Amino acid sequence: MAIALPKPIADYFAADAAKDADGVARCFSDEAIVRDEGHAYSGRDAIRQWKTASSQKYSYTVEPVAIAMEGDRTVVTGHVAGDFPGSPVDLRYGFTLDGGKIAGLEIVA
Rank of each mutant, 00 (worst) to 15 (best):
V65F: 14
Y93N: 08
D20W: 11
I33Y: 03
P88H: 07
L5K: 00
A68T: 09
V89L: 15
A53F: 03
S29G: 15
K57H: 09
V65R: 11
V80Q: 06
T96S: 06
P6V: 00
L97E: 05
G82N: 09
E31F: 12
D72Q: 15
F13S: 07
V89Y: 03
R44N: 02
S29H: 10
V24Q: 03
M69F: 10
D30M: 08
Q49L: 00
L97H: 07
R48H: 04
K19Y: 11
L97G: 08
G38D: 02
E106V: 10
F28K: 11
A46H: 00
T77K: 11
G104P: 14
C27S: 10
G100T: 09
R48S: 03
W50K: 08
G23R: 08
I102Q: 03
D72T: 05
A18I: 04
K57W: 09
I47T: 01
G38A: 01
A21I: 05
G104E: 14
E106A: 08
R92D: 04
G94P: 04
I3Y: 07
V65I: 14
R44T: 05
R26Q: 13
D98W: 08
C27I: 06
S59K: 13
A81Y: 05
E70I: 07
D36G: 01
T74P: 14
S87I: 03
A25S: 08
K19F: 12
T74A: 15
Q49V: 00
A25F: 15
K51Y: 09
D90C: 00
D30E: 15
D16A: 15
A18T: 08
G82V: 04
L91C: 01
D72E: 14
T96C: 11
Y12W: 09
I47K: 01
V34H: 01
A66Y: 11
G38E: 00
Y60T: 01
P88V: 02
E70Y: 08
P8E: 09
L105D: 02
G71M: 12
G99P: 07
P64I: 07
E106D: 12
Y93Q: 02
A17P: 07
S29C: 15
A68D: 11
S55T: 08
Y60S: 05
G86I: 10
R48K: 02
G94C: 10
A2P: 12
F95Y: 10
D11M: 10
A17Q: 14
D36W: 04
V75M: 11
S42R: 13
A25H: 06
D22I: 12
P6E: 11
D72A: 12
R48N: 02
M1Y: 04
T61V: 03
S87T: 02
L91W: 01
G104K: 12
V24H: 14
V108Y: 00
A10D: 11
V24D: 04
E31V: 14
Y60V: 06
R92I: 00
A25Y: 09
L91G: 05
I102W: 07
D83M: 07
A2G: 13
G104F: 15
Y41R: 02
A2V: 14
D16S: 14
A40Y: 01
A46Q: 00
K19D: 04
I9N: 08
F95P: 02
E37Y: 11
M69E: 13
Y12N: 06
R44I: 01
C27V: 04
A15N: 10
V108C: 02
S59H: 06
A53V: 01
Y12C: 10
I107N: 01
D90F: 04
A81M: 11
P64R: 01
K7D: 15
I67R: 15
